[in-house]
Design a protein around this nucleic acid. Sequence first.
DNA 1: GTGCCTGCAAAAAATTTGCAACAAC
DNA 2: GTTGTTGCAAATTTTTTGCAGGCAC
Lengths: 163, 163
Amino acid sequence: MAATGRGGAEHDETASPSARLGAYIEERGLKHSRQRERIAQTFFDMGGHVTVEQLVVRCRRDDARISVATVYRTMKLLAECGLASARQFGDGQTRYEPAAGRAHHDHLICTSCGEIVEFANERIETLQALVARRHGFEVESHRLELYGRCARCKAARPREVRP
Amino acid sequence: MAATGRGGAEHDETASPSARLGAYIEERGLKHSRQRERIAQTFFDMGGHVTVEQLVVRCRRDDARISVATVYRTMKLLAECGLASARQFGDGQTRYEPAAGRAHHDHLICTSCGEIVEFANERIETLQALVARRHGFEVESHRLELYGRCARCKAARPREVRP
DNA sequence: GTGCCTGCAAAAAATTTGCAACAAC
DNA sequence: GTTGTTGCAAATTTTTTGCAGGCAC
């Protein structure tokens, strides 16, 4: 729990996730709890793009009594304080990824094995802004997802239709 | 029901939606029905980005007995034969838009009034393909959505946070 | 001790499915 | 007449919520 500059105002982008969550909780008069700590820790350990279900399973390896509702509530909390962000990849389940101080990025998703790769492309972002302006829009956020087959799956089964 | 070249093979991209649906139904040994006709017609009349719920409401103005299940089933059928395509804009409801012979396009979505505008940008597509190749992916499809405030909403309430 | 949190189970919301009656061919 | 389709209601799936008891402060 690195106490990296937990000084004062607003959200310190340089603080560790734990510290930021702690700060957020205290600012709002909320309370720390064993569950919140465990869920947040598990979430960051898992690295990203996890569904609530996966998170529940993993959390329960350490503490079998963690309830689904608490995981939902905690992930919502993490999203509110900017430590996680929710994504929909069209499979019906919300996925969360760490968001603390990370630059914007988009996703490549393998339709064969489900692998999710992140990427960022400055030029695409620039063009997006351009397109939006042309339509009179002020962009707040965007999502770009490329669906296809990753190198490994291509090699394994060239030109085959996915399951 | 323009009988535009309903000649023979596969899916005639030049045929009218009704004709294509008819062809698809016959090819597969399925049956025509009053409901399918009505739902398809209503869908095409509505122009796009409609939810199943909106479709049900509208269909029931003409025929109060149309059931939700039938609308779901028919939209799935339209999607299968390439006349409609399903989109998820993250609000939890699937939206459908006409897809017959239309070029690929992406969406601008107003977070204030919900307006959905389509756009296409060749250069963005090119860059996407480039990024994918760089990661060893073979792209099958993609989605790009820009969320923000449209010109009208910006003018109405400049710089205000959305509801 | 007060007030937020948790777990459980019930509730919601969107979509799917089983089934008997019904319509298309 | 056979077979696919419909409407209804029940089932599913994902997420939310009410509530009594528990834990943090």
